[in-house]
Design a protein around this nucleic acid. Sequence first.
DNA 1: CTGAAAGTATACCGATCGGTATACGATGAA
DNA 2: TTCATCGTATACCGATCGGTATACTTTCAG
Lengths: 201, 201
Amino acid sequence: MSTRSEASAKTRQRLLDSALTLFSQRGYSATGIREILQASEVTQPTLYHHFADKASLLQALIEQHYGETHHRLVEVVSAEPSVTGKLLAFVKTSFEHCCTDPRVPRLMFQTYFGPVVPEIDGVLDKLTERRFRLVVEIVEVGVHSGELSPSDPEFLALSFCSMVDQPLNLFSRKTRPKRYLTPELAHAIVDLFLKGATAKK
Amino acid sequence: MSTRSEASAKTRQRLLDSALTLFSQRGYSATGIREILQASEVTQPTLYHHFADKASLLQALIEQHYGETHHRLVEVVSAEPSVTGKLLAFVKTSFEHCCTDPRVPRLMFQTYFGPVVPEIDGVLDKLTERRFRLVVEIVEVGVHSGELSPSDPEFLALSFCSMVDQPLNLFSRKTRPKRYLTPELAHAIVDLFLKGATAKK
DNA sequence: CTGAAAGTATACCGATCGGTATACGATGAA
DNA sequence: TTCATCGTATACCGATCGGTATACTTTCAG
């Protein structure tokens, strides 16, 4: 049992955790390495023992959390047979992730929509595209089966993602995202996407 | 004819223009004052003659452009009698503004969604809320008249704004937003919002 | 037992940050 | 003509930035 490497991994994780907190609040470029050191109670040489530089910290965070999130997303979507079920699972799972740790989506949106971070440019685009493709695939099935109207699947997916991601982005900034990102809101979004806002006679 | 104050105003405008370009690209905190000076071909004392500090530059930019944009938005929305017409005018005008100068929405989204800028905190929230209220009012009329389904107007407005703003945010980053933010897309968004994605029989 | 890994403590590097000080040149309004 | 305004040029301030160097413990693995 290697107590040694356990402690090492714990130190590394403490660094990542502090970086996640600070990056998601103040942003990457506005967060100093010293702040991360102080928050994680680690000295500077130790940080550079675990990570090559500041950018590597951000990269490690993005890849770790994006990987976990996407894996889970594919899982729950696959488990649902119907198009409606897949869409609902997509929204609910996205909401749940945000409620579990709002820092993660906060960092993602912040890095994606915020100022360009040259060291990361491209990586985030690929990961975001992957998530978007997941929705496109769901919608394509619906269009082909005649369940959805014969619109451009890319347009439908864009609009659906917008209806999901904008609230995610907005409410991940609040102190208690759970108050807003409810299962009821998830249902309402899918319902509006499918049926529209026009009154039924 | 005051050639003197004309030149002064021109210098001030050159500073604002360079700041808008740089802030919208690299972000507020990542943009140095020296970069702005170099881009606008002005010396440091001159900058501090026109503006108290770096934050005042950002504040001036936000108030100026947000004011103009909102004024125009209220104008075109009021000119349309129907709810559908108002919504369409809202989207089209928002798109047009972005095509005219993508730096403006880029700066807005960047400042709003990006890292917190303490000097500006609160100002942007108020301005964004004002725009949101405009949509809520439109939707409320539709709900009361029976034109729209009896849902929560705040929810409908949130979803509608999401469908508009997310593409705005995404495409304002592209080199030629005009390629994406077309009148056809504006129509499609309003149509989807009203009728939903479910196939009609 | 030994030596590499993981850690602390401290000091330093060059560069850049936002902002200020000083001295002086041009110009237009009074 | 006088004088405040608008401007340039240049140098400087203290602080912080990301990152490195050095020297010294502690601890587990081979």
